[in-house]
Design a protein around this nucleic acid. Structure first.
Length: 549
RNA sequence: AGGGCUAUAGCCAAGCGGUAAGGCAUCGGAUUUUGAUUCCGUGAUUCGCAGGUUCGAAUCCUGCUAGCCCUGCCA
């Protein structure tokens, strides 16, 4: 993966360049450290692209490390999904690591801290610890446990490990400074008791290290040089440095924080995404409306479009809210040259071409992609009966309506000009069919220039048409709404289902095939719902349009 | 308010003492058998505000303002 073009600069690259120039490190190692407690989303993609491509650019390497120090929330299902997503994006990790594989080493380091008088076993309850911690404006106070001897602490810590205490009965704390203005330094808890089996280590441990103690050790053990995380960990950097300095481990990783991605009309927290899944607002983590990697994949976004997006938004420390339209821009750009064009009618209106011979079918040539002629041509049938889009006809059109209306002539893409002569309605006055005439002179490809029409419509021949289902997605979350709870922002119209027709050659369409439906947008063959008997397409994104009714 | 961080166009963002890149969005115009694409044009005398240093400041200094984060035995 060496031809990822990213000429842009950011503050982390500056740091790396300087570290390399000054010899602080002779090569760099980064890591992507997800906790396996949920699915990856586009925000994680930003971090993945940053970590993998940064290392790649400076000839370093990147580990995938599962930060699995809290068995209560973690699950193998998530580790499998996370690996699949990273591979799908196209990255290869140097090492596949688990924080849980370092539990022995972490335990040893805790013992070292105790021996140095830098950690102690706390007797206080959770609530008491909170009270003793003080507040943002008042210092904390020291508990009696703080002055226990190293010997006694060693003994108690061993008992913690051996399961001699219940959850919450004891805890191991770093001895730093109860009066620190940085609350993270007021003797933070570094080990807690949790009689919970772990997806990797099983029943081996009943004490688990806390993030703030575990993470710097994980980085140090792996030789990570630049430990990149998000802004909310900034206050923990002094603690990170304290652990690196006071534990006996021969490596000096440094923590660098950047601003996480926020997207308009999108929620990005795992907690909220999980709630949408659990409460059935969506079909699952991979619902095409979800900002998860698996959701975007099922929707039809390409790895390249996601990566380009992540490179283009840049990396900084300023809180940001990126317009989703930027993401959409990059899929369109990627799919423009690679996706076959095809004509699909999402909401059909039958058209009878009254002067076209009954029973006759002609097969017309059509480019597969006019912007990429190498993709060749396809054959499409044409006959007396076709379907056009309901929205391409108006009985009483406004000005500047280029489509079909009584007396108007339009072009059928790849076929002929047709003129609308008669509108057939049902008892309720709904338009159910149009009678048109065609002009054989105007056949596409013949170079007819006799007269011009303003509109070109897509269509599907009626007798060969194949039925299909179309899932038209709108934002799952609507920022324009108001409310206190994020659920108040859920868009009730995030999914519309339409049933219409596609060209007969679409019979070959396979899961994840991507097409540009002429004048509609880009669509992906849904991998879960499509069967031999039923084609289901997910709308990835609409084509841009300056048309307003 | 104790600590930490941030502030450049509607949204991202480069810039690192020498006179404001780029992308998205928007709006014009040309081309067009996709109201698409493509092309061309479009916006900061100014970088949160106020002072100061300097021949010269978005960049350095001081003060102020606004926003975000921190009082889990979550990560």
């Amino acid at each position: 993966m060496s031809e990822n073009p990213n000429n842009s600069s950011n503050f982390i690259k500056h740091i790396v360049k300087e570290d390399l120039a000054e010899g602080t490190y002779d090569h760099i190692v980064t890591r992507f450290p997800p906790e396996p407690n949920g699915y990856l989303h586009i925000g994680h993609a930003k971090s993945i692209v940053l970590n993998f491509e940064l290392a790649d650019e400076f000839n370093g390497e990147t580990n995938l490390r599962f930060d699995d120090t809290n068995p209560l929330k973690e699950d193998q299902e998530y580790v499998d999904a996370i690996k699949e997503d990273i591979e799908w994006l196209g990255y290869e990790w140097e090492g596949l690591r688990y924080a849980s594989n370092y539990f022995d080493e972490m335990y040893n380091q805790a013992v070292i801290l105790i021996k140095k008088g830098l950690a102690y076993v706390e007797d206080l309850s959770q609530e008491e610890i909170r009270e003793y911690r003080g507040t943002l404006t008042e210092p904390g106070k020291e508990s009696k446990s703080r002055s226990r001897s190293a010997e006694e602490n060693l003994e108690l810590f061993e008992k913690m490990r051996n399961g001699e205490f219940a959850n919450g009965e004891k805890v191991l704390r770093a001895k730093i400074d109860m009066a620190s203005p940085n609350i993270n330094l007021r003797d933070p808890v570094i080990y807690r008791i949790s009689h919970t089996p772990h997806h990797n280590t099983g029943e081996k441990w009943c004490i688990y290290p806390m993030y703030s103690f575990a993470h710097p050790l994980e980085d140090a053990i792996e030789g990570v040089t630049h430990s990149i995380c998000t802004l909310e960990f900034e206050d923990q950097r002094p603690l990170y440095e304290w652990v690196v300095e006071n534990c006996e481990i021969d490596a000096e990783p440094k923590q660098i924080e950047f601003a996480r991605l926020n997207l308009t009309n999108t929620v990005m927290s795992k907690r909220k995404l999980k709630q949408l899944v659990d409460e059935n607002y969506v079909d699952g983590w991979d619902d095409p409306r979800m900002p998860t990697i698996s959701g975007l994949r099922r929707r039809g976004f390409t790895p390249e479009s996601i990566k380009t997006f992540c490179r283009e938004i840049g990396v900084s420390k300023a809180d940001n809210l990126v317009d989703v339209r930027m993401l959409e821009h990059f899929v369109r750009e990627d799919l423009k040259l690679t996706s076959p064009r095809t004509m699909s009618v999402l909401r059909p209106l039958k058209v009878v071409i009254t002067n076209y011979p009954e029973g006759e079918v002609e097969w017309l040539d059509a480019d597969i992609n006019p912007e990429n002629p190498e993709m060749g041509t396809r054959k499409i049938p044409f006959s007396r009966e076709i379907y056009i889009e309901q929205s391409d006809f108006m009985e009483n059109p406004p000005k500047k309506y280029f489509r079909l209306f009584p007396g108007n002539e339009v072009r059928l893409k790849h076929a002929y000009f047709i003129k609308c002569n008669e509108v057939i309605k049902d008892d309720e006055g709904n338009v159910v069919e149009l009678h048109c005439t065609y002009d054989p002179e105007t056949k596409s490809g013949t170079g007819f220039t006799g007269r011009k029409v303003k509109g070109t419509l897509h269509w599907v021949e009626a007798t060969h048409a194949k039925e299909a289902e179309f899932r038209l997605y709108n934002s799952l979350i609507d920022d324009e709404k108001s409310g206190d709870d994020f659920l108040d922002f859920v868009n009730p119209d995030s999914l519309e289902v339409a049933h219409g027709y596609v060209e007969p050659n679409m019979e070959e369409a396979k899961a994840h095939d991507k097409y540009q439906f002429f004048r509609h947008g880009y669509f992906n063959v849904d991998p879960k719902e499509t069967t031999a008997y039923k084609l289901v397409f997910n709308r990835i994104v609409e084509l841009k349009s300056s048309f307003k009714l």
